[in-house]
Simulated assay, not measured.
Amino acid sequence: MKKIGYTTGVFDLFHIGHLNVLKRAKLECDYLIVGVTSDELSLAAKKKKPVIPFQERLEIVEAIKFVDEVVPQVNYDKMEAWNNLKFDRMFVGDDWKGTDKWNAIEKEFAEVGVEILYFPYTSHTSSTILRDVLNKL
Rank of each mutant, 00 (worst) to 15 (best):
E115D: 06
L27T: 10
R24W: 03
I4R: 05
A104Y: 11
E28K: 06
L41P: 02
W96E: 13
Y121D: 09
R24C: 13
D12Q: 13
L41Q: 04
T8R: 10
A104H: 09
C29V: 04
A110S: 08
K65Q: 15
L130F: 06
E80V: 12
K2S: 12
V34M: 04
E69W: 01
N83D: 10
V112Y: 10
A63W: 00
K49C: 13
D88A: 12
V70S: 06
V67R: 07
K48D: 08
N83R: 14
F87A: 02
T7G: 05
V61C: 01
M1Y: 05
K2V: 15
V92G: 06
E62H: 09
D95T: 11
T37E: 05
K86E: 03
G35C: 00
R131F: 13
N103R: 14
I64Y: 07
E56W: 06
T7R: 05
Y6C: 07
I60G: 02
N83H: 09
P72V: 14
L58W: 02
E80T: 02
E56P: 09
I52K: 09
T8C: 09
K49T: 13
T37G: 12
M1S: 14
K3F: 14
K107H: 06
E111N: 08
A63P: 08
F87G: 01
L43H: 03
C29M: 07
C29Y: 07
L43Q: 12
F14Q: 02
R57C: 05
G9N: 03
N103I: 03
G35S: 03
L85P: 00
E59T: 14
F11W: 05
D94Y: 01
Q73T: 10
L19Y: 03
R57T: 03
L134I: 08
I4G: 04
V34I: 05
L13H: 07
F66P: 15
I33S: 00
L134Y: 08
D39C: 11
N75R: 13
K46V: 10
S123E: 08
K101V: 08
S127H: 04
H15S: 09
W102H: 08
G113E: 13
L58C: 07
K101S: 12
N75A: 08
K26S: 04
P120S: 10
V67C: 12
L22K: 10
V92R: 02
A25T: 03
